[in-house]
Simulated assay, not measured.
Amino acid sequence: MLRRLIESENYTSEEFGRVLTGLGIRRSVGRTGVCWDNAMAESFFSALKNEWLHRFVFTTRAKAKRQVIRYIEGFYNHRRLHSALGYRPPLEVLNEFLSTQTAA
């Protein structure tokens, strides 16, 4: 049931909330209709699902966790271009920021 709810992307539904509560998970969402508070997180999770996770079938949580880490550390931070960062990968922007901090 959780997988069906996640695939439908109906994260604000009452049914989804009950499932999360039953699993001991607290969701972090703003008020209904306030789209910008989670925009960056929603964008990330959309990319994660569409670019990576839909390619795999996971038999354990550990395997799913490894693939998420592989996506984030192997692709998302190092090679994926982000429009919010001037079409540069996050690691490049971070390194640029750190080099300006050490030079100052």
Rank of each mutant, 00 (worst) to 15 (best):
E9I: 03
A104R: 02
H78F: 00
K63F: 03
S28K: 08
L85I: 09
R4G: 01
Y11T: 04
K63D: 15
H78V: 08
V34N: 13
V68F: 01
E14R: 05
Y71E: 04
T12V: 10
L53G: 01
Y87N: 14
Y11C: 04
T21M: 05
Y87H: 12
C35T: 08
V34T: 14
N77V: 08
L85Q: 10
R4Y: 04
S8C: 10
F44C: 11
L20T: 02
R80A: 05
E51G: 11
N10Y: 00
R88Y: 07
L2H: 04
T32Y: 08
F45Y: 12
A62P: 05
N77E: 05
G17T: 11
C35H: 10
Y87T: 06
R55W: 00
R3L: 07
A104F: 00
F97V: 14
W52I: 01
Y87S: 09
V34M: 12
V34E: 11
S43K: 13
G30I: 15
V29M: 15
W52D: 10
N77C: 12
G33V: 02
K65D: 11
E92H: 08
L98K: 05
I6R: 08
A39Q: 06
R55D: 01
K65W: 08
L91K: 04
A41N: 15
C35G: 10
F56K: 09
A41I: 15
L20D: 01
N38W: 13
L2R: 03
L94W: 11
